Simulated assay, not measured.
Amino acid sequence: MAYLRLLLLPFSMLYGLIVWIRNRCYDWGWAKSTVFSKPVIVVGNLAVGGTGKSPMTEYLVKLLNGKYEVATLSRGYGRKTRGFLTVPIDGTVEQCGDEPLQFKRKFPHVTVAVDENRVRGIRLLFQSGHEAVILDDAYQHRALRPGFAILLFDYRSVSQRKWLLPAGNYRDSFRERRRADMVVITKTPPAATEGEKQWIRRSLDLPLHIPVLFSSIHYSPLVSLQPDKHANEAMLTKKHTILLVTGIANPIPLYDYLQEQVQEIVHIRYPDHYRYTLATVRTITTRFDEIRNSSKLVITTEKDAQRLLTPALSGSLADLPVYLVPIRAQFGEQDERILQQLILGYCATASGVDSV
């Protein structure tokens, strides 16, 4: 694999040149970036997937909801529709994408919208009376200049090579980190020391005005996908064997967490945003039946649950005890205070007339 990455380096250099030219066009004003007067917060990353954008977006929704008429906006990756769409509570992955549907089901009273054209989507949301918009995964969308940009790095990725695609995992240059208003290191292990955090801050080499905060994953009790057929919640013990089904970019933190709770894990790992089919469900059923331990459950993620709960599949899963693991971003007291002061302070002062 290492040799293959080396062979791909020339393509990464070409890709890097294209990315550099594109970014400079926006920096130098050759390409237009739209600025909105009302609060527009972007959550994003430089690498490909798996940095915890969804939990961070949900954290911001909880922080701002009730203080502002807030909405979330994303591209709606994997949906089969086009244009602007407000996500309905009974929507489907095909209509909206898995992450927007997850947001809507967790926050039914919050407007969740999708639009591949973020500028158009924001404009429509503000025209309909919304006071603040949170954009999931839009750090590279340079046609928009956000009022506040939060850049995420996975804790384990900070020390890794910052190579661009296809040799590496970065879709944008590491130098673009300096466009952020705040950097959050996600999935920080509970045992991380202050010395390790200081090393990360130094390695990022950011200006003093860009704070570097640390968040970890908080795992909530298991919730049934079909509470009308199975117990709504379940507790794990060292007697359990679980069949873990994931179609996300980085399931390793979840696997490590569950490994501490149970006797054995059988893991079926699919690619990020994997579209489940009846054949997939049959595979899950077969692997579950092969587990001899009578204390067994199927566990999946919140994002996977949106794709497994489609009408075409939910009936086939009815006999299986399938549970999801709700997660949320969790900050230490000092970092949380800094984050909330900056976000609420920005939203309170954002005002004026839209401009381009």
Rank of each mutant, 00 (worst) to 15 (best):
L208V: 13
N232R: 15
M235D: 14
I252S: 11
K229D: 02
I248L: 08
L206A: 01
M235V: 15
L254E: 01
I210N: 05
L244N: 02
L243D: 01
H218I: 13
I252D: 14
S224G: 00
T241S: 08
L204S: 12
L222K: 10
I242T: 03
V223G: 02
I252T: 11
V212I: 11
N232S: 15
S216T: 15
T237W: 10
A249W: 01
P207N: 08
L244T: 02
M235P: 08
P211V: 12
L244F: 07
P227D: 03
P221A: 08
N232L: 15
S220T: 12
G247I: 05
P221H: 06
V245P: 07
S220Y: 10
L204Y: 12
G247Y: 03
H209W: 10
L254V: 13
V245Q: 04
I217Y: 10
G247H: 11
I242R: 03
A234G: 02
H209A: 12
K239Y: 05
L222T: 12
L244Y: 02
N250D: 12
A249V: 11
I248R: 07
M235A: 15
L243R: 05
I242F: 05
S224C: 08
A231P: 09
L206K: 06
K238W: 04
N250K: 10
P221T: 03
V223P: 01
H209F: 08
A234Q: 09
H209E: 13
V245L: 06
D205N: 15
E233G: 09
S216P: 11
V245M: 07
V212P: 11
T246M: 12
L243T: 05
P211R: 09
I248W: 07
D228L: 14
E233C: 14
K238C: 06
S220W: 13
P221K: 11
P253D: 00
S216D: 01
M235E: 14
K239N: 13
V223N: 08
L222Q: 10
L213H: 00
P253G: 10
I248A: 07
S215T: 09
L225W: 01
L225M: 13
G247D: 03
P211Q: 08
P227M: 01
S215C: 04
A231S: 13
P227K: 04
P207I: 14
N232H: 14
H218L: 14
A234Y: 12
D205V: 03
L244S: 00
I242Y: 01
T237M: 04
P251F: 12
M235G: 13
H230Q: 09
K229G: 01
I252W: 05
L204T: 12
D228S: 15
S215P: 02
P207C: 11
L204I: 11
L254S: 04
F214I: 07
Q226G: 00
L236A: 01
P253A: 11
H230R: 04
H209G: 07
I252N: 11
H230T: 00
I210R: 05
K239R: 12
Y219S: 05
S224H: 07
I210M: 07
S216A: 15
H240A: 04
A249F: 03
I242E: 02
Y219I: 07
L222G: 09
L208P: 05
S224Q: 07
Y219T: 09
L204R: 13
I242N: 03
V212F: 09
